[in-house]
Write a protein that binds this DNA or RNA. Structure first.
Lengths: 148, 148
DNA sequence: AGGCTGTTGCGACCAGCTCGCATCTGCTAC
DNA sequence: GTAGCAGATGCGAGCTGGTCGCAACAGCCT
């Protein structure tokens, strides 16, 4: 994603009355600019490459705050640490239990389930928080890959 | 569930070459006999009511072993500890983010999604491991319940 | 430039779980 | 029944991922 998006986000945050500190800007930048599905720890590493004194708890607090503001969202792809996305990129995940492959869930499948739950149970699904586990095509065909 | 089921399980485990110890029998009994969706900690409490010296790590190790043998299965209903079911009772869950209500997901909705993933991506879903979060009917209608 | 207040660095702490190790106990063979 | 082996247990230390309290610091407004 283009770095210009960062400026837009910063502007929006400032309007929300959030102070733009070095740490916060760098966390955002690591989100926008870095690899997808980063964990808090990966974000910390990225941030520290630019500002070595940023503390882990600061990253956690910023992620919490950014999530509260609806800018980002966190997801659990498995048993390990949570991963973070920009809220604009929220999507469901299918994760292979054996090889760790994570693919984006087809939106219409997710929607179909959400519609069903709403109509039958009145339940409004937010189906992005936890991945759906299973076996990817190649692992399911008995071609075991080393667990990631 | 009837306690007779316990005998069947014990028999089956013995055939699998598993030793039937006091702790193991009590863990199974707590699973069969106790409340549904127990956490490891709740199981420990139940077990200790009958055998106070059973250690937490023993319960964890037994749960791990029983899961490996396909007798039970664990599920994450949210951010807290995992919950355990008998494998025969595996099912998807919808969990309300606000009030904590957990309902069983309609099987056909789950199957529909699994079928779609298989046909389109070759992905074999095991959609029971993580719950799908959302808002239950009453919370969605703006009648906030105290968070569980 | 001054000051209010939100943020930060820091370390202690917490939940949930795992592991190493010495001891013990089901189970099998006698 | 009992001897002995290997798997299971009790115990505590340790690990990961994350949270919290607190004093010092630094955006932002004026």
């Amino acid at each position: 994603m283009a770095l210009e998006a960062l400026d837009g986000l910063v502007l929006r945050l400032r309007e929300d009355g959030v102070r733009i500190t070095t740490a916060r800007r760098l966390v955002l930048r690591a989100m926008v600019d870095g690899p997808s599905h980063p964990t808090a720890d990966e974000l910390l590493t990225t941030v520290r490459a630019m500002a070595p004194d940023v503390h882990a708890s600061t990253v956690y607090r910023n992620l919490e705050e950014l999530e509260r503001l609806g800018v980002i969202v966190h997801t659990h792809l498995g048993h390990g640490p949570a991963t973070y996305h920009l809220a604009t990129e929220a999507h469901g995940h299918l994760v292979c239990e054996r090889c760790g492959l994570a693919v984006e869930a087809p939106q219409d499948l997710v929607d179909q389930m959400a519609d069903g739950a709403l109509q039958r149970l009145g339940f409004v699904l937010r189906p992005y928080h936890f991945a759906v586990l299973g076996l990817c095509a190649s692992c399911a065909q008995g071609a075991p890959q080393p667990a990631a």
